[in-house]
Write a protein that binds this DNA or RNA. Structure first.
Lengths: 125, 125
DNA sequence: TGTAACTGTTTACACACGTAGTCGAATCGG
DNA sequence: CCGATTCGACTACGTGTGTAAACAGTTACA
């Protein structure tokens, strides 16, 4: 099992489409991203290839084209990215990040409410 | 005022030393990072130059060498990085990230305690 | 005062990334 | 069966990054 290579920003955008639909052709992805990013289909194909090489997705031949689907789960990716981010900036823990946001007044009412609910649930366990 | 160019990973490590000590020479930085990363002094000088060009630090001549000190504040950098991270992965808000960590059982007792205290303080405002 | 030591500046280079064009093979339509 | 179309694979290219050596100017010591 090769070391899970890191997914680049642009690649993750393509991957996100696959997470959303489960699977898709290059054309589907291009259509899905049409408005968001203005990428040529060529670009998307390159990104799909790189994701393939990195083992993050798989390609199943269907007629003359490939159907791509994720191998790397969104959850795994989120965890990996989050951890490396928190390690780099906040000593690997979540609380200091929240504290930073709090000090900077970047916590919305909604954030606060959700956090409170979350903690309440945790205590009920 | 030129657009605040983005600080790379390696650059941020050097910058962190300056935040810690307020100011330092290239030699100081090399010494400070000696154990952590195994960089040649040459490498550190390159990184300092790039930080200079990006306007993230300043250099004050002292005798035959420069004393470098941060221009970009750690807080600013934290905010910027955090925001772009949260935007990319969690719709720009903190709560979903914490929820993710909670689901994945990545919240330490300490995290939970700190979060609870933080919320208590917020309500007392 | 000449030369060694030091320190910043220049140059280097491989690799990842964003972005995309070209090519060759397969296929579809007539 | 042949030309047109359609795909994926290969190639391309500028830029940022990690990493560092070479060079040049200046200072300090013998």
């Amino acid at each position: 099992m090769k070391a899970p290579e890191s997914i680049s920003e642009a690649e993750s955008v393509v991957l996100a489409v696959l997470w959303e639909r489960g699977s898709a052709t290059a054309e589907d992805v291009t259509a899905a991203l049409g408005e968001q990013r203005n990428w040529q289909e060529s670009t998307i194909k390159t990104l799909l290839s790189r994701l393939l090489q990195k083992g993050a997705i798989r390609a199943e031949k269907n007629g003359r084209r490939f159907i791509y689907s994720p191998l790397l789960a969104r959850k795994q990716w989120l965890s990996k990215e989050s951890e490396s981010f928190l390690n780099r900036l906040f000593g690997g823990r979540v609380a200091p990040l929240v504290a930073h946001f709090s000090r900077e007044r970047k916590l919305s009412k909604r954030d606060i409410r959700e956090l409170r609910d979350l903690l309440r649930d945790l205590e009920g366990e």
